[in-house]
Nucleic acid binder design. Structure first.
Lengths: 199, 199, 199, 199
DNA sequence: GATGAATGAGTCTTCATTCAT
DNA sequence: GATGAATGAAGACTCATTCAT
């Protein structure tokens, strides 16, 4: 429910190694607190302490609490984005089925690596006033799937890609919430839903 | 990420008409703030003010802020639960297809009546330490679908029902987030995914 | 540390039997809460509930919370006052030793009947802005002892009576705090201190 | 009437000079309010304001209001404890009478330096859920007197020391309440009671 | 009279953010 | 640059007291 315009970007990207380490430590600390205790427990003092830096240092890199969480979203979405893009690139000369399997591997493993974190970050996305660029990262899955479907002449690729991504997310999220960990089983079930929808 | 045991139940259910009005006004005010400004903006002073009652009155009925939101979850889940149960009861001597259509009507219309609220309440469910009884309300959809599938001899009804509900929720949530309002269109797409999965 | 002038008296003394019962029930409820949970837990809602009356009724009899506690002090001090006065009256033609023993019986048994309450009421006395009349009740012991000592030609009866009462209270309070219950033993020890002082 | 387990210890002891000043200012402010307006007037906002610090700073050092008062008790009891211990140590090769005089000096002057505070702290002790360590400080007087009496072969030193301390406290408290300030006179009267008891 | 729902000032406590050292 | 002490606005909750029914 984005409303006001809190600063949502890091003050500066680190250039030197030590600064980068601090920057990353802060993000990782925020991630740990987020997955362990939830959004409401993420506070700048706790993050700084867990990161092993002072609040003052934290504020050297991040102007607001929101900017930390937004950057975390960016980081994780970016990892997924790259997996997805390379899967689609790789799949351009493969069958639709093969490529979708690769995409699902990417999506399922990404979600299940740190399932609590993945879930929490979805919450953060819906709470934070993210900018378009950041929201676009989340949109990546959909866009790439749409490209893929278009390339394979699937009809109505826009709506179809949105629905496929949505239903896949629905099943994977539910599995994450239910603490399921068998990625192969989840993959199989999502696959069934996706190809069912496409058929 | 339920952790501690905050009080999560109303202090007392209203007996008199005046009290019932206050009780309901508080829930409705919380719902309005939730759908308009999000979880973090729900604070007891704001809720009391919008409800047109004093904080003191609010605390006569609800021992904690959380208990208000939990009761809101209960209320809305209960509405859905009843729709779903009557749909399944009605459908016992109908075809699977007819019944699922009825269920999807219930689910889609429930979600789209107040889409922001529906989305926000899902967040609330994941944030609040709800008790089993309350969580069970949410489970209702799954249980009823499982009964239905069993009655129609669908194989592996447990997993199947969970997945169907999850994927439907995925598509409907995404539609809600995207501010889609054409219920028939959403119904059609969910239907496609559900029957695709079942086939 | 009496400061401002909160109303400290009942609104009216009950005339009819039913009213007297309510009045007493309120005092007894306050006493129970006081001895069980301490000064800070005495609140008008709790007192009314334990007394089995509505807050509204409570405020018919007592204009403020303080007036309840003040009346409780009055009531208990009055019981002691009467015991003490009759002991002194009885002792006018007895030996000093016999009379003091009777006084100590009164004092020790009064303190040990409801030891937690007795202790709590001493606290209340020091916290509440009691009026002179009420404080005078507490003064009764001292005044009567002074009369007694004068009648027996003890020198400096003013200071002596104050000290005797104070040291007796010191020992009895400590015994109460230590949850001692053997009244005879406590009596013996106080006696020793009193006659030691007098000798 | 200790019931629940509120945090009763400082969050951290100050390390730097500035921090120590803040810490002490908070304790002194609490002491001032306590002796001037009583227990019920000690609230964190008032303490912070009188200490000349922000509430936030107060809560850096003290996790709860209770922890401030508990620390105040610790501080003052510790001062007395040290006086008493050195008096007893000094008196080991002196007569009982000389040593008791020294002890009474310590006790009387300690109580009369800030008589309102001393009285209020006794109340605090009975209200707060102090831990054993803190309560033991108060017990120090008794233990030391017992050692002293044993060393001088007084019979039944346990009970005797408890009673002596109790009666002395009774007289000194009463003197404090009566706003007496002549320490020599009070000393003389307590002395009379103590040696009377011992004889 | 009795009832108990309603009021709101008053308190405790947290946490994002600043800034002196 | 880094540190962490300090700030204070904001929010949860209590309880003495009033008043409509």
């Amino acid at each position: 429910m984005p409303k006001d315009q809190t600063a949502i970007h890091p003050r500066k990207r680190p250039r030197q190694a030590r600064a980068a380490a601090t920057f990353d430590a802060i993000l990782e600390a925020a991630a740990r607190i987020l997955e362990k205790d939830g959004f409401d427990s993420v506070n700048t003092n706790a993050v700084a302490e867990l990161a092993g830096v002072s609040v003052g240092s934290l504020y050297q890199y991040f102007p607001t609490k929101e900017s930390i969480l937004a950057e975390l979203v960016r980081f994780y979405r970016n990892v997924l984005k790259e997996k997805v893009e390379s899967a689609v690139a790789w799949g351009m000369d493969k069958t639709l089925e093969e490529t979708i399997d690769l995409l699902l591997d990417a999506a399922v493993s990404h979600q299940l690596e740190r399932p609590e974190l993945a879930l929490a970050l979805e919450q953060v996305e819906s709470i934070l006033p993210l900018d378009n660029e950041t929201l676009a990262l989340t949109q990546t899955m959909v866009d790439n799937v749409e490209m893929l479907l278009s390339a394979h002449n699937v009809s109505n690729p826009g709506e179809t890609s949105r629905d496929i991504v949505a239903l896949a997310r629905g099943i994977v999220d539910a599995a994450g919430l239910a603490k399921e960990i068998d990625q192969a089983a989840i993959h199989r079930r999502v696959r069934r839903a996706v190809f069912g929808y496409l058929s």
